[in-house]
């Protein structure tokens, strides 16, 4: 991030400019728009996410942050513009995308181990039954076992992966689910509010884990969040979705008092701490907005 800012870099690009070598973009939106049930969710969205970046999708509740992820997955069709995912159509990338949907928790009585849930991310869509002891005879099964071991180690779930998943904490479940999303070595990881419903220490440790995965595994991460503070230090780019459109750019460009106040329609201050970190104050906090998630009313 020490490269000089080219003056023509528009706030529409998450990072980079013409001075840097041509990079590949695992995720691009060009003039994209989504209309659901006759209502325009957002339109004119431009976004370029570079390989290996950690980009957050931010914005008030109900503006279509999850819709952005679903458009990238090819689950929600665009009404205008185009999306390019890993150089192809959305929905075509399949195995190369890891996806963590919003707010998933497991029934407390579910007597299945965490490691089995992670393994389903690897082979759950294969037909047939896994044979016991097959790893002795089949190299694919052996590779699977090794990969499973690796990803459990990566998310630090070794000590609780053998426990029934209904009985581990929310933060532990989230780590196991991240492992499940990662187990096929995706190039692009789409996470929908992975910090939602976690307490503060867990929010910061899961955020650190995602950042570490992004750096060490070279995975491009696009993560939906409603609170920017736990992840702000790790981000390469942000996309603010609000008022039917989106603004994207580097955190320092987009996260300013004027931009955020305009997007949220409410006074927001961005402060710089003594160690140079940004803190957003006045952003509508998550808990106050939780109730409208369950009403099912159009927001």
């Amino acid at each position: 991030m020490t490269a000089p800012e080219p003056p023509e870099a528009s706030p529409d690009t998450a990072s980079g400019g013409p001075l840097e070598a041509p990079a590949d973009y695992p995720l691009r939106f060009e003039g994209a728009a989504v209309v659901l049930g006759g209502r325009t969710i957002w339109s004119g969205v431009n976004l370029d996410v570079r390989a290996g970046e950690f980009v957050a999708v931010l914005g008030p509740n109900g503006v279509g942050k999850s819709t952005l992820v679903k458009a990238a997955l090819g689950v929600v069709p665009l009404s205008a513009g185009r999306v390019e995912v890993l150089g192809g159509e959305p929905g075509a990338a399949g195995r190369a995308i890891g996806y963590l949907p919003q707010r998933r928790s497991f029934d407390g009585g579910l007597r299945i181990r965490g490691i089995d849930v992670v393994r389903l991310g690897l082979d759950g869509d294969r037909w047939g039954v896994p044979l016991p002891g097959a790893s002795k005879f089949f190299s694919r099964r052996r590779h699977d076992d090794e990969r499973l071991d690796e990803v459990i180690e990566l998310v630090g779930a070794r000590s609780y992966c053998e426990r029934p998943i209904g009985q581990v904490s929310g933060g532990e479940q989230q780590r196991l689910l991240i492992a499940q999303a990662l187990v096929r070595r995706p190039k692009l990881l789409l996470l929908d509010e992975p910090l939602d419903s976690l307490d503060l220490p867990n929010q910061s440790s899961v955020a650190a884990l995602i950042s570490r995965i992004c750096r060490e595994e070279g995975v491009t991460v696009v993560m939906v969040a409603h609170d920017v503070n736990p992840i702000l230090t790790y981000l390469d780019g942000v996309v603010y979705v609000a008022k039917g459109g989106a603004v994207s750019g580097r955190p320092t460009e987009v996260i300013t008092s004027t931009t955020l106040s305009r997007l949220y329609d409410t006074p927001i201050e961005v402060l710089t701490t003594s160690d140079g970190r940004l803190v957003v104050v006045g952003q509508p906090e998550a808990p106050a907005h939780h109730s409208d998630r369950h009403t099912g009313l159009p927001r």
């Binding site: 997955l73 689950v75 399949g94 996806y99 949907p101 998933r104 497991f106 579910l110 299945i112 089995d116 849930v117 389903l120 991310g121 082979d123 759950g124 869509d125 294969r126 037909w127 047939g128 039954v129 896994p130 499940q180």
Partner: peptide
């Protein structure tokens, strides 16, 4: 068996995986 187990334990992801 295996896809059924997947769909039972983790329906959201099973759908996303086709």
């Amino acid at each position: 068996a295996r896809p059924l187990f997947f769909a039972t334990v983790d329906a959201d992801i099973a759908v996303a995986r086709g």
